[in-house]
Design a binder for these strands. Structure first.
Lengths: 131, 131
DNA sequence: AACAAAAATAATAATGATTACTGTTTTAAT
DNA sequence: ATTAAAACAGTAATCATTATTATTTTTGTT
């Protein structure tokens, strides 16, 4: 079990993600960190994103998109992804009764997390289509 | 607006997906169709999967996995993906009240579909870990 | 403070899923 | 039968992600 040592780069990735609501991709994170750390490597970003996802510090969002997105908000919540502008919007999902889904299905394994993604068109894009 | 013409290849892709509960990847579909159609091209499989996904005939499942999976079952249902054996299991999701999520969030766009993925460990893998 | 082992890094090469291209074949309507 | 559009097979190109390697950081110990 490899122990984790501090790294300034990992710290800045966490800070960036925790202060963003934009669900950025690895490359977007990389471009942003480069401003203050021109030598940071894209491989370092990927390696740390994987590490942080595995440890549960951040979440990885795999949508029907070319690249994965990452979320610093680990509180249970859903996502809405606009098919038109591709923005990702956070949604509260208190209304969803996951336990009942699992019991209704007589599911006997263990569930660590649920990922809920709605697809459609956001309000802005719907409005723009009327123009 | 390009009109769609019949193709034997597309037909066989649909048939394969509609008769499977395995949520195969593009390559798995390709390998299976090759048995009866040795000349079919992987590019053809991908092109048709994209077309069929766009038309709503099939569903694309983007999980935290290297390649996308496809589902011939377009009835609303959730998926459970085992972190251990990576099997994808269908779950009924009647218990989930999506409308309330959207109204609770004052969501004003349009939603065409919801994708729900549970992650964890399936019953078989949990059992095996006890050995 | 110097030392050393483990971990992390930057830079770059490699992988692998998916998409694009091109010349040929198939479809479907006239 | 003719023909234009669509789809195809085969293959090359793209692009997100992972692996490799030599160097630098971290962190615990003398």
């Amino acid at each position: 079990m490899a122990t984790t040592k501090y790294s300034r780069q990992r710290e800045s990735i966490i800070n960036f993600l925790k202060s963003s609501k934009e669900h950025p991709t690895a490359d977007v994170i990389y471009q942003n960190l480069r401003v203050n750390n021109p030598n940071i490597s894209l491989g370092t970003v990927y390696r740390n994103l994987t590490k942080l996802t595995e440890s549960g510090t951040i979440l990885k969002i795999s949508c029907n998109d070319a690249s994965d997105h990452f979320d610093g908000n680990t509180e249970p919540h859903a996502h809405f992804i606009c098919n038109c502008c591709h923005h990702i919007i956070d949604l509260d999902m208190n209304a969803l009764d996951f336990n009942r889904v699992l019991s209704d299905n007589h599911f006997e394994g263990t569930v660590t997390n649920a990922q809920v993604v709605f697809y459609g068109e956001c309000h802005d894009c719907v409005k723009n289509h009327l123009n």
